[in-house]
Design a protein around this nucleic acid. Sequence first.
DNA 1: AGCGGTATAATTTTT
DNA 2: TTATACCGCT
Length: 775
Amino acid sequence: MHDDPLLRNLNPEQHAAVTLPAVPALILAGAGSGKTRVLTTRIAWLLQQGHMSPGGVMAVTFTNKAAKEMLTRLSAMLPVSVRGMWIGTFHGLCNRFLRAHWKLAGLPQSFQILDSGDQLSAVKRIIKAKNLDEERFVPKQVTWFIAGSKEEGLRPRDVELRDAQTAKLVEIYEAYEEQCAREGVVDFAELMLRTYELMRDNDPLREHYQRRFTHVMVDEFQDTNRLQYAWMKMFAPPGRGQSVFAVGDDDQSIYAFRGAQVGNMADFEREYHVEHVIKLEQNYRSFGNILDAANELIGHNSRRLGKNLRTEAGPGEPVRVVESTSDFGEAQWVLEEIQQLHRGGIDRKEIALLYRSNAQSRVIESALFNAGIPYRVYGGLRFFERAEVKHALAYLRLIENPNDDTSFLRVVNFPARGIGARTIEQLQDAARSSGRSLHQSVGAVAGKGGANLAAFVALVDAMRERTHGLTLREIIEQMLQASGLLDFYRTEKEGQDRIENLEELVNAAEAFVTQEGFGKDAVALPVDEHGPGTLANDAPAPAADRVPDAETGEIMSPLAAFLTHASLEAGDNQAQAGQDAVQLMTVHSAKGLEFDAVFITGLEEGLFPHENALSDSDGLEEERRLMYVAITRARQRLYLSFSQTRMLHGQTRYNVKSRFFDELPEHALKWLTPRQQGFGSGYAREYQQAWQRGAGMGSMVGAGRIEPRPAAPALVPKAPSHGLRTGQAVFHTKFGEGVVLTLEGQGDDARAQVNFGRHGMKWLALSVAKLTPVE
DNA sequence: AGCGGTATAATTTTT
DNA sequence: TTATACCGCT
């Protein structure tokens, strides 16, 4: 049956998925079930069998990383050029589409892409120009409104004007669109929406692409938003006979907060009359106890498509659970355990420390730092987002397009050249009243400011002239000199790192030109603007990079292509790759990764599940899925950890252990600290204090049993008449068990704020409420 | 223009 | 606690 080497070693479900006929199919791919393998093997198999040509493939992912992974694996499987295939991120493919059809899309040929930061400053400018109150129209929220509207497929005229506030927001949205059009830029959501609209409105074009893409595959389908689903339907609508291969996992849907619609999976099944739903439940990553924990936990969610992970690997080690008295103690314990694991032969890069929110990394970082253990924190600034790099890119953008006001404003006075806020305001007024760009309005400003502005414009113009015809590397080097950026950072005391980053920018450009062959994302394919007819269906881009525009014969410049690349792929964050370092990240950023050993820290009510998500059941279910994602990252060892107290916003919070502990199977767990009946029993505290005095936990853990230690004197303030103190565990007949957070007032006035975990935070009058101390 | 003080708010994130 | 924003001063 499996003579074909491609299909060898596939399990029956994977095999079935790979060799499905060309009809719509939904693949429910559990964590660690070989999803990417199925996706790439299917493409390879279809090509090998001659069921489709390379040009007939469209495979969409969310991240550049996933797209790259797919391409790498695919080219390892088959000696096929990936050039003609449309494999990439939603935004990358939109970019490719719009580069080919810029004219029809109503865009300038080398339109540039705004990242979220650029978009924010663009919105800020509009709010200022319209003289609106930034309190009422918070720029961040306005960008959410705009992106949100676009992701619902709504242009300003389509948004329902529910109230005055919305009407004003729509007005800003409208102005924002005009501004983007004037400057020749698009934001991320615009890439999607513009593509969708062009496909919707241009019959020959739609017809062409629908005929071309016989196989459309969408990865992480549970993360698609409304627009992305509608977009997909434009390329492969129901009933047109294309193969649509949607791969996803509803249990790993953790991006509802940014518009993801898990419901798209069910909608897809219904609208496409999907007959083939294949569940990939065989897990190749984790041992049984870990999967038991994951399965049981996620079983507490309703509204699932239903899926259970199984393994043939045996139960493996138990899931270890640890309680600490403080976040500090937790970090110390994690540190010890990491050292133990490392001594036991596990690479540090195979150890992940996961947390719900970024703020939690700090304590752990300092513990690791003090112990001299190398670590890498995910998240944070990425390469192309760093200030000095953005400045350099702004100059490059101005070389490419002097009317890019966002870039103009970023560097008009950086390095300082005597152009102050007043001058800029005058310039903006002039530009606004004439409807022209800042660059075009420079002449309207008189005086010294005006002269300086003119000098700036002359500088950029000179850069443009002098770099004409040079290689990308030379252009950037010229610009770094001429702009004064290099000189500026050379004289700055902490400028050395920045200069290194600017040099790195030159390297990145060089790499882009040579290795990447800057065509992949950025350069137009030879697609006729005027519809099918003359189209070579899957003509690969000729000899790599420089594809002339179908109509004018113009070539997109390497510079414009590089700028596009920089916007679409923000690059890694700073951490030195390659080193054997412990991996620190949020649970969200751990999605898709796997490690030998995983620590999930801060498993406390209010933190994980997060308090902001507790108000509705959808929120709680997403938190639970998040926990599910976290658990399923672990191959061999999983640690769950929580702490009685935690420093948050500069205050000590008294927490209750996460409700998720009650949703895990007892048989799979092993408590390394004594199992608590209620909360904060003296025993655990004594134990922790004993440990913190230096007894160390590793040996006790290693021995597999914990010996009671002599009690340490409790460091608590003197007890007032009601007998309560902060941190006190209490019982309330209605709310159950809780922990006292704050005590106020005296006698009959005395009040206590109590954290009842899932019953929330309560203020109780002690003269009325029946609170029983638990200890 | 740039510095330093105070106020304020503080999940999760990719493109 | 800490990062960022804004204001007022030099």
